[in-house]
Design a protein around this nucleic acid. Sequence first.
DNA 1: TAAAAATACTCCATAGGTATTTTAT
DNA 2: ATAAAATACCTATGGAGTATTTTTA
Lengths: 86, 86
Amino acid sequence: MELRHIRYFIATAEELSFRRAAERTNVTQPSLSEQIRQLEGEIGVRLLERDTHRVSLTAAGRNFLESSRRVLREVEDGTRIARRIA
Amino acid sequence: MELRHIRYFIATAEELSFRRAAERTNVTQPSLSEQIRQLEGEIGVRLLERDTHRVSLTAAGRNFLESSRRVLREVEDGTRIARRIA
DNA sequence: TAAAAATACTCCATAGGTATTTTAT
DNA sequence: ATAAAATACCTATGGAGTATTTTTA
């Protein structure tokens, strides 16, 4: 897993759309889809439901979204603090 | 920044040796060195001191190490919990 | 039909490797 | 002399793109 997967997942979970998430993250829809597929494959859990006409979060996905936000926040905080110390 | 950078940095900070950190993360020493260089470049801060014969952490590096551990811990916890929910 | 996600490729940027040099003791 | 990190260069994996198909409202 890389931060890329987490960034794309957050975008998709917030947009509830692969196409809009792809726009927002500046990649094409197939590239983003593939990365989400990889993420679900590695965790072994379906995070997004797209059986029907709309994308929605699974229960596991809702939880992973919160965790993902904490991860990115920690990365940003860690970076900012390192800069401030130096 | 990707989790790869954070994983390599933790290994190097703990081993205080590029060679041993490379072994531990299963990459070659030049590859690991380059990724650490990228990480420091992106943050804009020196995290490791290698002017002298030994590697040591800067003040910013010590802080970033703690943050890095929290990041990896959150990724692991998030993954485990997602699996448990599903 | 129309709109969005999935599939099937192609390409190329870069992570990682090998070989070597530099540096410090 | 020795050991470790840096530098130079090469290779090839996989992230990202284009084109197309599938799906479903």
